[in-house]
Design a binder for these strands. Structure first.
Lengths: 239, 239
DNA sequence: TCAAAAGTGTTCGTCTTACACCCATGC
DNA sequence: GCATGGGTGTAAGACGAACACTTTTGA
């Protein structure tokens, strides 16, 4: 089913199989040098040319919204096969200046080092931006971002998802600092250690940090299979 | 802005200000005689005539999605001014048989006794249905319902929302049985009592149960202002 | 007087919190 | 040798789980 309609953003007539009046926007979190960051793109065309935004776009008629989010992220940033989770829909009448458009928010946590970000498609640039330095974004994208941040702060305490932001091998202090950064609190090194190790979620490795100017710390890895086994036994991650 | 289009469900040409390809569906929870229930309506027209469904419908061009959910619920069931919260969007390509329609799920918890339900608009009937006796619903409504149930089970442990299902004045045992029903677990009376009272969320009343064939229990009330004050001091509801 | 639910008390083991302190390493 | 982070230990108190017990009331 091919439809013709005017892309309200660019003003062009689009002859394609996308749905009108409904879009997707993605909040991608990363963690790097102690800072929580999110991925922003710079629009290359349309009414928001030159402005920063969350990666997003239109949904095709024949793809599910989950698949649309995957595709859009790939097209705009080069990120492929990311685990995305839906946040919710944003549908205030005035959120989009050129007409009534509802957007569905998605979010994901990724290991920054594992991916090479490159602007593609209708994006002229893509970058990681510190959570404290977020500029004014287009439309209601700041609202979506703030909502997702709140959601992340809740989720990170209920489920072991924080690991997705760290390199595969990490130290306990790195993990603690991640929690401190996300939750905006200070934690006790010794108590954190005990608590996380007691869960037996982490696989200790026979490896240590390298090139550090202090005693090298043991490295750990989060094992998804261990987590699955534990949850089957009734284990419930709580932080 | 008035558009003409074919209502894919009824086949009629609709000349109105509703958005096409996007709908809203509401999961309304109630609690009555120890049972968790949800509100279902029977469609009076269209391809799903005579079948049971979640209350829902089309979104108007000039109303926010939150307002649309309010309006649809009022039109279909008579429920007015309910506190609704959005769940998420459901957008598989095959969820609706006559075309591509994305739906946004909403849910709410209400005190059954406070409202008189009456079928209206395109509904021929509306009823409260026990959570264990849910029939086959139209489209993906069973999926939406199951998701909202999972969501409720999580939420009820993180925030004091269970009270919305009980009468204003309730006993501690009623509250405990509500938790037992929602979570599907058994609890210890004495421990439950201590835990909930320690939170100091409940306002004890100078009133007791009446017309019971055993020792009458003290009645309590949930005070939203107390909760607000506590959260400001850093209190975090956890169950 | 009995059933049914209200309400209190006790014990034990575990977890949390707040510290103090020693260890290894590079500069 | 000192700064930096790694890592262990401990003591007090809070909390959860399990269970025994007393009280009140209507039928």
């Amino acid at each position: 089913m091919v439809k013709k309609f005017i892309d309200e953003e660019s003003g062009k007539i689009i002859e394609s199989s996308v749905m009108n009046a409904i879009t997707i926007d993605c909040v991608i979190f990363g963690f790097n040098k102690g800072d929580l960051k999110i991925l922003l793109i710079e629009h290359a065309e349309g009414i928001s040319k030159g402005k920063w935004a969350l990666p997003g776009g239109w949904i095709k008629e024949e793809e599910s919204i989950d698949n649309a989010a995957q595709r859009l992220l790939r097209e705009l940033t080069g990120l492929n096969n990311i685990y995305l989770e839906q946040l919710k829909a944003f549908g205030d009448t005035d959120r989009f200046p050129l007409g009534r458009v509802i957007t569905i928010g998605y979010y994901a946590l990724i290991k920054i080092e594992d991916y090479h970000i490159k602007a593609g498609f209708t994006a002229s640039d893509a970058k990681w931006c510190k959570i404290r330095d977020i500029p004014q974004l287009i439309y209601d994208h700041n609202t979506i971002l703030n909502y997702s941040l709140k959601h992340l702060r809740n989720r990170v305490r209920q489920a072991p998802i924080g690991f997705n932001l760290l390199p595969e091998k990490f130290t306990l202090l790195q993990l603690m600092q991640l929690y401190e950064e996300i939750l905006g609190i200070e934690m006790d090194k010794s108590n954190f250690r005990r608590k996380i190790l007691r869960m037996k979620l982490l696989q200790p490795l026979d490896e240590k940090q390298k090139d550090v100017s202090h005693r090298a710390a043991k490295l750990y890895r989060f094992d998804h299979n261990i987590y699955k086994k534990l949850t089957k036994k009734g284990f419930n991650f709580e932080f």
